[in-house]
Design a binder for these strands. Structure first.
Length: 314
DNA sequence: TTTGACCAGACTCAGAGAGC
DNA sequence: GCTCTCTGAGTCTGGTCAAA
């Protein structure tokens, strides 16, 4: 009787495991992403496999396990709930498009405090064939999923566009167009209010360069006094000294480009608290959505349209 | 005592030949 | 062409061991 193995020249998992001095179980877990395997062991197994030319068989779904499900990871952390406001339509479109090709969407709530393995096992237990992640970015989780042959598609997260399929906001172009809009309104003294976004560091850089390009095209020199770094958190009752100093200077800006809508709201809140009117004394513009913090609509903050485009490995 | 890393052996899955 | 059976590859479960 013939063996299932058709090519005896190809190395087997057992042989790779023996070479790497681990059990076949451990080697299998390295490739499947299951279990707890140390970094050193993982590295040793992968390097041995690569050296021997071992190819891990794709996890072909069986008839029993073919679920036709796609996971949609959605942040439920309190500070990010505002994004649901403008994601509803996007999620509906994703679901409709997946339905057309016979796939069901499963929304999996995730938190930044949640461990990779817990999220991973949720996805595995639901037998999802692919994962969309909206805003949420966790390289360690994504690489584990892709090792398990589960493709990952990131939405609204520019950090990993060189590693995973990503659907990104064009932050550079958005900031450029926003600043141009202010220039077209006659503003020439435009400040930039930044903040540290540890979750999305590229966002800050891209938007700053978009702002800078628009000003450079008009040969307007960027004044260092106009660049403010702001700490997020609307609960702060202390007026921001940076805004006070900015507005009391010899040549205060007539408009501010804020990194995002939360920072815009904080800028608006601080400026009004220290006696300035918006847009009377200064205009504010920010990328994002109109927020409704503390039941106060900030309709005077102009929101700008952000074009979405496909980037990454497509 | 808990946690992480790993292993042994039982188990599942799926390809392929044999028999009808 | 369908079903049965065999078999190797890979996975899962439950356990051990060491370190914190």
């Amino acid at each position: 009787m013939k063996n299932k193995q058709s090519d005896k020249t190809l190395p087997k998992l057992k042989e790779v495991a023996a070479q790497a001095k681990v059990s076949p179980t451990t080697a299998s877990m390295v490739f499947s992403g299951r279990g707890r395997i140390s970094e050193n062991t993982t590295k040793a197994v992968r390097e041995t496999a690569e050296r021997m030319g071992y190819v891990h068989p794709a996890r072909k779904p069986t008839n029993k396990s073919k679920s036709g499900r796609v996971a949609l990871l959605m942040l439920i952390d309190r500070e990010w709930t505002f994004i649901w406001y403008f994601l509803n339509e996007m999620i509906a479109r994703i679901e409709l498009d997946l339905q057309k090709i016979g796939l069901d969407t499963v929304i999996i709530p995730v938190s930044h405090n949640e461990k990779d393995k817990d999220i991973y096992h949720k996805i595995i237990n639901l037998e999802c064939q692919a994962v969309f992640s909206i805003h949420y970015g966790k390289d360690s989780l994504f690489s584990r999923l892709e090792n398990a042959e589960i493709p990952v598609i990131l939405i609204l997260n520019n950090n990993y566009q060189d590693k995973y399929f990503s659907i990104c906001v064009d932050d550079f172009q958005g900031a450029y167009e926003g600043t141009r809009h202010l220039l077209n309104l006659g503003h020439t003294k435009i400040g930039f209010v930044d903040t540290s976004r540890e979750d999305l560091p590229i966002l800050s850089t891209d938007r700053y360069y978009g702002y800078r390009k628009a000003l450079e095209e008009e040969r307007i020199e960027i004044q260092k006094d106009y660049l403010i770094s702001c700490t997020p958190g609307l609960s702060s009752e202390n007026p921001d000294n940076s805004f006070q100093t900015l507005m009391e200077g010899s040549s205060p800006p007539t408009a501010l480009f804020c990194l995002d809508d939360e920072i815009a709201l904080q800028s608006w809140s601080t400026l009004t608290r220290i006696g300035y009117t918006i847009p009377g004394d200064i205009s504010i513009l920010a990328p994002g959505d109109v927020l409704d913090y503390s039941k106060t609509y900030i309709a005077k903050i102009t929101t700008m349209h952000i074009d979405m485009k496909y980037v990454g490995r497509l």
